[in-house]
Nucleic acid binder design. Structure first.
Lengths: 358, 358
DNA sequence: AACCGTACCGAAAACGGTTTCGGATCGCAA
DNA sequence: TTGCGATCCGAAACCGTTTTCGGTACGGTT
């Protein structure tokens, strides 16, 4: 049964027609008799014909492929969203018979040359880039290359490209307001590295919310760490060592919040009772921490699909500015937040030691 | 300076040479004068020439692309390993200038037709498939299509293809042995759906270890659930409702173990003290559960790289049977296991309620 | 002067499609 | 009978590479 690979040529020969006729028949041209079109389609089915995409794309001059640039800095805990995003992207792309490519580099420098190669070699017709820097060289490059792209997140000047983002500033404001309602005034913030735009956004939210609530910024209450659990742990440790430690901590990412919880427990504080912790990301895993993590969740279930749709639209020639979407995050209250404890008892250090993997 | 797209043709014209000469010069043919070769290379650099991969692949007759088939059944908690795998794969592929494609389908049926399309349309030269079923139709299909592939995991009859797997049976034996050393005899097992080969393997390990330790299988001690935290939670609930509940539980995946911990706590048991729980996967997240999860970790840091290397070898014509690799998992002890408590006190139900996201 | 081998490069086919253009065939009206 | 417009299909160019096969020019031998 293993017939030779079915090409237009063998199909044509098999039918006593020309390659061009067969091609037009399959592609729905109107100058083909419906009868012969049916005949062609039947034969194509029987021979299991699939047009060679490589040849097709060469002829069309379009790669029909988009590339997702994998974040190369993120720690493993933050990766679940990557798989979700890819699924969403894949969904909308396969409907159009487009391909989804994975772009992966070890550094921003490598990534730039990767983008350059992919575009100039005609392999890729568009990019999705996640978690941009404040001043992201990748975006400039893609603009220079005149290659369509869509950003998952935003940069400072995001006026003239397509993006999909969650309003991090508003989200953190929500978090601060929530803590203030619970009676907290000594609220600290553990931010992510400030090269990332999202770090800035979330930090801005913190600062604005303080002002709006009539609170003043306490020196040392803003820590910066890389977004891993370890980073969150050391940053929280710094906060607790302050002469006047905070009663509530907002973390720029859930993974950092995981570390903050660990730091609190290891110093004998009961997170959610002695000190409130609020994360940001809405990792479903947060339901299992000790205590379960209250967090700002981003509705990124269909982020991938939206990003895919937007990118395809831009590639189709639509104005990128028309495709900018800002989502709201919302608070999911679990157990790591609670009302301020008025009487401040310095807790005794627990004997129980927290373990930590290396 | 956005020059027209640099093709061999414009390069040739620019240099006063022929397309074929330029091509051979760049590809290191020996019948090209070293002087002109240098001249050509310099011009190529200056014009930013990148060979059109589509055209190249058409001419070569090789797609130079492999496809990773995304698991479509998995729950989100189990996805971190996907991103890792993709990075590893991407690493080895980009070194060869091959592309990594994402294949995603919503059902096994769709997946089969996806594979068929990808192969027959010449888009893909090989596949990586994760977490195979006991009798996996995808594997049969790829064999029929004579398309190279490598399996991340194994099936029952895995003799004649390439695979990379962790010895799940041995791993669970290790876990059981460990529990027995701690004094446990009433050891239960929460398995994953038995359509998956890895479920069978791990279950076999459980059964074998019981025999080896002179323990007999207690009715009801083997539960099956889908591999999500919810699944683990209900399964653990069943175990605790047994007339004689187990003192230790082994879960086929970490995410199920997360649920098991929740079930224990919600019924007032102290996991790790009253009842031991051991997971399987080594999710780094397990360090943050309540209590931190003891688990069998798979060394899958470089699984992606190995799979990529193996697949490329097979595509190069090597015997798939030569590429079968079995890794050992090892126990990482955190806090969810502990010695058997001799006196069995039925604990009082805690007032504290565990929340759970929907 | 004729011959030959080597070094270097050009011509052209091929990969498998898409698309433009022209040509044959037919029915029908003038 | 001629002319004309539809209708349907074939011929051929093209997309940008790779690769085989010749061909020219040149040097050195006889």
């Amino acid at each position: 049964m293993a017939q030779k690979k079915a090409s237009l040529k063998v199909l044509a020969a098999h039918l006593g027609l020309t390659v061009s006729t067969v091609s037009r028949a399959l592609n729905g041209y109107s100058d083909i008799n419906e009868q012969t079109r049916a005949r062609v389609k039947r034969a194509a089915d029987e021979l299991g014909y699939r047009p060679n995409q490589t040849a097709r794309r060469l002829s069309l001059g379009a790669p029909e492929t988009i590339c997702y640039l994998m974040p190369h800095d993120a720690n493993v805990l933050a990766q679940p969203f990557v798989a979700q995003l890819l699924q969403g992207l894949s969904d909308v792309l396969t409907k159009r018979n487009w391909d989804l490519l994975i772009g992966n580099a070890e550094s921003y420098k490598d990534e730039l040359s990767l983008i350059d190669r992919l575009v100039k070699s005609g392999r890729v017709g568009g990019f999705v880039v996640s978690r941009p820097l404040v001043n992201d060289p990748r975006i400039r490059l893609m603009q220079d290359l005149k290659c369509p792209f869509v950003v998952h997140g935003r940069t400072g000047s995001c006026a003239d490209y397509a993006w999909y983002d969650v309003d991090g500033e508003a989200a953190v404001v929500t978090a601060v307001d929530h803590l203030v309602e619970l009676g907290h005034e000594k609220i600290a913030f553990i931010g992510a590295p400030n090269q990332y735009q999202f770090s800035q956004d979330r930090l801005c939210g913190y600062q604005r919310a303080l002002v709006e609530n009539g609170l003043s910024e306490v020196p040392g209450y803003v820590q910066t760490a890389d977004f891993s659990d370890e980073g969150g742990e050391v940053a929280a440790g710094m906060l607790l060592d302050l002469p006047e430690p905070p009663t509530a901590i907002i973390c720029a990412t859930d993974s950092m919040a995981f570390g903050a919880l660990a730091a609190l427990r290891s110093q004998g504080f009961a997170p959610g009772e002695d000190v409130s912790v609020i994360g940001y990301d809405g990792l479903s895993f947060g339901a299992h921490t000790n205590p379960p993590l209250t967090t700002m969740v981003q509705p990124q279930a269909h982020a991938g699909r939206r990003l895919g749709d937007m990118l395809l639209s831009v590639i189709d020639g639509e104005d990128p500015k028309k495709h900018q979407e800002l989502q709201k995050a919302y608070l999911v209250q679990r157990k790591s937040d609670g009302p301020l404890r008025r009487k401040e008892v310095k807790p005794t250090v627990s004997v129980r030691e927290e373990t930590h993997e290396t």
